[in-house]
Design a protein around this nucleic acid. Structure first.
Lengths: 210, 210
DNA sequence: CTACTGTATATATATACAGTAG
DNA sequence: CTACTGTATATATATACAGTAG
């Protein structure tokens, strides 16, 4: 094989993946020995050293089960980040200023790659089809970053004060008015006084099941 | 607090989260003792038993570091799934029939929640702005499920045989022709003979950095 | 050198146990 | 009962070491 790994080393990697997926903690050297039918713990240790040299795993000395799988670039694999699902959007629920202060309805898991260092993200479940042209359908989940302001054309969750309602729309400030534009060719824009519209967050990602 | 946990138990949970995020393997009871400034390993064991009773963690007996964090529903937390990034779309690269057979340019990590049991997913990097109305911009990554057919209106990656090109468009079969509709109001549709269009996959998710 | 066998061993680690305090 | 203290201990575990084979 072209990856420079022996059959045994690839077998150990496979076992590591599988064991961790199953138990959520790494195997001991004896677990690996038995799982891969290896004659001696020395052989496991020997091959783990080779895998570490090749940048495929990371180990801590004299610590039990201290084996971490690395990705193909020799970097730590990303874990998931938990984002609270706060409620439906386009319903009469204001988004709290401090998302941590309310009990979320559910927890959405994203990879760090998707989050890219953004903090305090929160999730909402979309109601209605006003964003269908953006492939955001009824029941989909949108991930938002808390923001009090937005640039023209950004997709925001906006709190319409006198309606007591949060809605997901494209944001266009126009003088003293704000135009909230649906992304659905069958729907017209909502025009509101700027003082009646509070931007709550900016769209960062969507999760869909097409 | 209303979650029925003592200060110490919440402290242990926080430490578990942090330790696992940092090391990618769970702490030993002694690690927890020191990390949370607890007087004795017995106290750690005692509180871990309480956390296990409350369905917040899972332990394996007589196994070192055998602590798994569960989510708030007492379920196992999902790990990430690796999806190969095969190349750019709207460039002259056919998507191989068996994604596993080519070396991916990169690996995209998704949560199992996003994958929902779909198999053999692959990722492509979008070139151009033909899907901008769907909030899919130049440089974004799209996740596709291998498919040879599609329903009208679905977003597909289509291989246009005589152009030697893969493109991401909405799919509308029209008799012996296929209309490939960009989602960009400034662009017109592409009309091709049905025999000249091969559906390669169906859009499942997008990853964006707004 | 690489890739093992087979055994030994120090220690890392979970856990038991006898109390104590409210 | 709950929530600890403080100590002891069996064993789970990583690792060292002396060889062997190509």
């Amino acid at each position: 094989m072209s990856d420079g790994l022996s059959e045994k080393q690839r077998d150990i990697l496979r076992f590591l993946e599988q064991f961790i997926a199953e138990h959520d903690y790494p195997p001991s050297i004896r677990d690996i020995q038995q799982g891969c039918s290896i004659s001696s713990t020395s052989v496991v240790d020997y091959n783990l050293k080779r895998l570490e040299e090749k940048g495929l795993i990371r180990r801590d000395r004299e610590v039990s089960r201290a084996i971490e799988l690395l990705n193909r670039q020799g970097e730590r694999r990303r874990r998931t980040v938990q984002v609270p699902l706060l409620g439906p959007i386009a319903a009469g629920i204001p988004i709290p200023t401090h998302p941590d202060s309310v009990a979320p309805l559910d927890i959405i898991e994203l990879t760090e790659e998707q989050v890219r260092g953004k903090a305090n993200l929160f999730a909402l479940r979309v109601q209605g089809t006003s964003m269908i042209d953006a492939l955001i359908n009824d029941g989909d989940i949108v991930i938002l970053e808390p923001r009090q302001t937005a640039d023209p054309g950004e997709v925001v969750a906006a709190w319409i004060v006198d309606r007591g309602e949060t809605t997901l729309k494209k944001y266009y400030p126009e003088g003293r008015k704000v135009r909230l534009q649906p992304m659905n060719s069958t729907m017209g824009p909502i025009m509101e006084d700027a003082s009646n519209v509070q931007v709550q967050g900016r769209l960062v990602a969507t999760i869909r099941s097409f």
